[in-house]
Amino acid sequence: MLPGDQMQESQSLDNGKVFEQFFLEYHQRLVLYALKYVKGYDQASDLVQEVFLKLWENKSELEVNRSLKAYVFKTLRNHCLNYIEQQKIRTQHHQSIHDELKDMEIEFFNAETSLLQKEMGNSVMRALSNLPDDYSKVLRLSRIDGLKNKEIAEELNMPVRTVETRIYRGIRMLRDNLSRSALLFIKLMSSNNKKS
């Protein structure tokens, strides 16, 4: 039931049910993606709604397929960038360090593709469940259950520092595993037990 690869391809978006399914499946990923550009969940969510409205207007011409998915991410990105531009004009650049970091990130993702765009959600989840328990437990509480490090420390009855170390190492292991996931993790040994 994870998002990704679930929706049958080439269904017309003009079907209410197909549209709803597409919406529910991509909403979260798109909001997370928008958060790379804008600050605040509400803002990101509004921008995503606007992109879906655009899709809605053209739904009779659209089909669910790879290029639609790519198109949605691209449209959202442009939409976010426009929004940022408008904001900048409005507020005259009075930038905080956070804004500068955001700018740096936006610039970085001009050239890089996000895992969200690559539909890597499933692989990330799978890699997560394959981490050693100590790490996967902490990361699950953080990423899936949405707990803060301090809350995880209370929940697991361990120092915050330990949680932080595990989070850091865990996320790094996750990344290493993902980049290695193309490699086969199987070691089959066969033995020829001749009984007769």
Partner: peptide, 29 residues
């Protein structure tokens, strides 16, 4: 930024995000 990206992507499937999607769909529809 790669770590941060992974950090964000690993939230896909998060229950809060899914119910948020449901609510957003309600508004949208």
């Amino acid at each position: 930024f790669h770590l941060k990206d992974l950090w964000e992507a690993s939230q896909v499937g998060n229950a809060a995000g899914m119910s948020a999607a449901q609510i957003a769909w309600k508004t949208f529809s």
